[in-house]
Structure formats: C-alpha cells, structure tokens
Design a protein around this nucleic acid. Structure first.
Length: 136
RNA sequence: UGAGCAGACUGUGCAGCCGCGGCAGCGAUUUCAGCUGACGAGGAAAGUCCGGGCAUCGCAGAGCAGGGUAACUGCUAACCGCAGCCGGGGGUGACCCCAGGGCAAGUGCAACAGAGAUGAGACUGCAUUGCAUCCGCACGUUUUCAUGAAGGAUGCAGUGUAACGGUGGAAAGGCGGGGUAAGAGCCCACCAGAGGAUACGAGAGUAUCCUGCUGUGUAAACCCUACCCGAUGCAACGCUGAUUGGUGUAUCAGGUCAUAACGUCUGCUCGGCGGAUCUGAUGCAAAGGCGGCUUGAGCGUUCCGGCGACAGAACGCCUAGAUAAAUGGCUGCACCCGUUCCGCUCCCUUCCGGGCGGCGGACAGGACAGAACCCGGCUUACAGGUCUGGUCACAUC
RNA sequence: GGCGCGAUAGCCAAGUGGUAAGGCAAUGGUCUGCAACACCGUGAUCACCAGUUCAAAUCUGGUUCGCGCCU
C-alpha cells in the first residue's frame, strides 16, 4: 500500500461513523472524511454478524484487495472506513472490486473536492436538533 | 453379497496472473521505499474443562476452613489422562458403557398415597381368655318361671402374632417344607447379602468351607476414610516512555489520636511484621515501543525392553511468530459427489411407463473451521476418502 | 488472549430435591345505561441434551446464547 496507513483507534472509527459521508457498495458500506494528513488511512469493520473467524477474515481480505486495486485512482488525505455486510464472504471478490473502482472512487473524489459535504448526523444528537429548531 | 464393530491415516491437487507476513542476502543509507531467496494454520488451531512448564507476589510457620480425586496395578513432568486387569450392565457376536470407596461410624431427608416410613404400625385379619346377650337343649331341682350344661353366633375389653390384602421407589432377606392355638429364621433345604477361615494372585478379586448374623433408599445430602492442592496469570513480568486530572504507591515534613484499634502475610484463628490516620511536597506506575516469543517433556527412521500405555540407544532434521492482527484473491484444468437436466444404450412391459442399470455432456456443490506464551490430555464440530483386523446373516463349493 | 457471571409467562422476578409464589401487561366474566375502579377466572417443555435419584427448575457433565472485568 503506497500512500496508506491503517486506522486502528476506536475513537477514529466513532468519528467517521458520526460525521463521515457514507456510500453503499452493494455488499459493503464506506465512510469517508478528510483528515488533513499527507496520506490515506484505511479501517475495516467486520463485525460478529458476518460469521465466524474464517468468514470475517475473508471479508477483510476481499476489502483490502478491492482497496489496493483502486488505490492509485484515489485522492490523498482521506480517512476511509469500510464496513462489511453479511453477504460479502459468499460473493466473488470481483463484484466488490468493480463497485469500489467506479462508485467508491467517485464518492471519495467528491468528498475530497468538497462537493459532498460531511454533515453531522443529527439523529444521534438530540441537543443539536433542539438548537436547530430554536434558530428556525 | 449385505449389515455391523474396533483401530490407524488423510482431510482436494496442479498451473498462470496479482498480492501479504516476518527472516536472510544484495544495493542504497538518517529513515522510508526497492530486488532476490527459502519458509509461512489444524485435527480439531475451537470450547477454556483438567494437568504441567514459565513468570511475578508472599515466605515464620502451624492449625482449621476451602477445593479436587475415588475398585486395583502400572505409565507419565503431571493429570478428572492413558494402558492392562477386576467387578457390574448391554449386545446373537466382533465389541461397547460405568462419578465403580464408605448409609454395617454419626446426622439429615423420604412429598402424595398408605394401618404403618425407620429398627415403625395394628386397619382388614387369624388365634385365644374374661364378661354380657342370643341360639341350642340330653339330664337334675321344679306347678309355671328360673338356674346349671357339650357346642355355636354377635358385641365389648385384654393377650399373642405379623403370614395374607391393599399403598408405595422402598414395608426389615426371597421361595418351599416342617412346626404352631394362630403365627414368626422358631427349625430345615436352596438362593441373595454380611462376617470368619483356607488356597491362588502383585492387587482389586476368585474358589471352597463354616456361622442364622439379616440393621430400607439417598453420600452428583452433610459427612467419614485415603491421597493431592499457596495465589495470580504473557493484558504475567523486565526495560524505556509524552501530556494532564483522579487513583494507587514510596520517601520527607507538619497536625490529630493512642496501646486498643487498623493495615498486611490467602478466608479464619494463633502467631509474625508495620504505631495508625489526615494534609502538603517530590518521585514512580498506567497510551505507545522493545524484550518475553519460539530448540521443545520437539519431530522422523532404525534397533531393543515391555501384553500394553511407555521407556532406552543410535543417526538425521529445524519446521509460522502476526498485533485493526500475514499465511490470500481471481481464472483454467483434473479429481470426488448428485431422489438436478439432456443425449445414447441395456433390462422389464401389449401400451402408458418403470429400473439404489451403464456411458457421455451440462449445471450445482466439495465439510468443520484460522495460530496469539508453550506443551500433555479431555470435550465438542466435521463433506467425504483410504488401509488393517475381527463379527453376524444369506448363497455357492 | 485470559478470568468470571447468568438464562424461570409478553415484561419484572421469588423459588437450597416433593403441586413453580407474586406484581405489571393481555384476555374472559360479574358490576354499570356505557366506561373506569373493584372482584372472580385463564395461561410456563423452568434455554437445550444427557446422567444421579423413587422423584430434578434445583445436584453433576456437555452444548447454545447473553453479559461483565483485565483503570
């Protein structure tokens, strides 16, 4: 991985779930947000819903293979978290790779150039919702 | 040929393209990045159910408490493990299963039902004695009445008994005969258990004889007997280490209390050690990094001892060490499989159709499951396949 | 990775071998002109599979699921 480090702290994952711009790739979801660093950071989530350790490891390998295929096309300076869904280990890896190279790359370029905004998810913060109503 | 038993092994293979992990080498060098090479998941890596190594803590010990194991002999570093053997149970058999010490040391519990539930009880009964009533009526006294009398019935009270009946998981050995007023191991034969003696065996135990001793079940109830166990776990532990708060801890200073309390040594007691507590100051610990981290009760072959588990000797080999966590992704071919589909062919059948028949092709599928300090076991999950040795049934010779 | 705890009606739960308490909710009935309140009823494979026992929610072993701790 040329310009990529691993994202391994729980706080960073929570930050992306809360305020990242997400996009569906069929059997996976991606959350993207700019990080201000001269490199990309990649995090992978394969939860207990997917299955046992063999299925989780296969999901992570497929995601990493898809990312490395699309890496040269991505802009630099992003945090990316990929969440696997339970149908991912049953599929052929080419399906996800193709989706990542087209829709995922488009989404990341949009976030990097500012066309897709990284909004706060207000459903998880009732306080923010109230203040917005007061302003209205 | 079919069914079934036990043991051992294996657990898809090959090629191409693209990748990953640490290691070694090359080149470069402050690093990063690069190239080459060999290596890179399992029989259960799983569950974390046992046992050990290793590490730290404590060490002034003793007793109690607590936990574990349970026929016997061995193997092992150790074991709730394994091997052999004994006893019991299951199967026609190969063979399989068993928490398999002691309720006959003591205590507890045994609902409901039942007469009675622990060495208990007297319901229905059986037998007998006394009293009362009635039946019976030879004979004696007698006008009648009444009284006595072989025997029988009913009721009440007492005595003996526990066979029979029903309840229950269990009713104080079982069954048969004798015996008795009726009964009872009261006596006898056989059987079951217990105790004792002798013989054999390393032992559990087995065989024979004697003794009338017969005192339910439950110890995966408390408990007793024998043996074993310090606690915590690699997030242990050692070195290094940025920022700030609480916390813990060490030292120093000051205040308060006082010989009893408190803290600590495993839970308690004795005992040992520390006076205790509050405030302030200073230092240390925790993120991360490095070590621990893979040469080990190691593996393979041969020989030898042992029924076997296992032990010994010689020679050879080095075989994963990740940390948001590598050991893969895709494609093609081969292999295996199919109450799928198509085609050809064979058999049965008049036809419809049928065949746990064969061949070829297409399609779908190929299990359970991923090292995390390391070993020895156990348990659980698992598509299939191979080999070896027994057993039963049928047929043929 | 290591250590520990739990599972009982839709929900909260008691239950130390002998008929599975109780509360809320649901539902049927009585009361009322109709409701509410009140009263009387109704409901459990004790997570699952074996074993010990005459008898297991309880005791023992295994499996599944859930939860906590290692600042």
């Amino acid at each position: 991985m040329l310009f990529t480090e691993t994202l391994n702290q729980n706080a960073n994952f929570q930050r992306l779930y809360r305020s990242g711009a997400f996009c569906s790739l069929g059997s996976a979801l991606i959350y993207v947000k700019p990080n201000g660093l001269p490199c990309n950071r990649l995090g992978i989530t394969a939860g207990k819903k997917i299955g046992n350790a063999v299925r989780r490891n296969r999901a992570k390998r497929i995601i990493r293979a898809a990312y490395s295929a699309a890496e040269l096309k991505l802009p630099i300076g992003l945090d990316i978290v990929v969440v696997a869904r339970s149908t991912l280990p049953d599929q052929n890896a080419n399906i996800l790779t193709e989706a990542f190279c087209t829709r995922g790359v488009k989404h990341c370029c949009g976030v990097s150039s500012g066309e897709i905004p990284c909004t706060q998810n207000q459903k998880r913060k009732p306080g923010g919702k109230k203040s917005a109503e007061k302003q209205a």
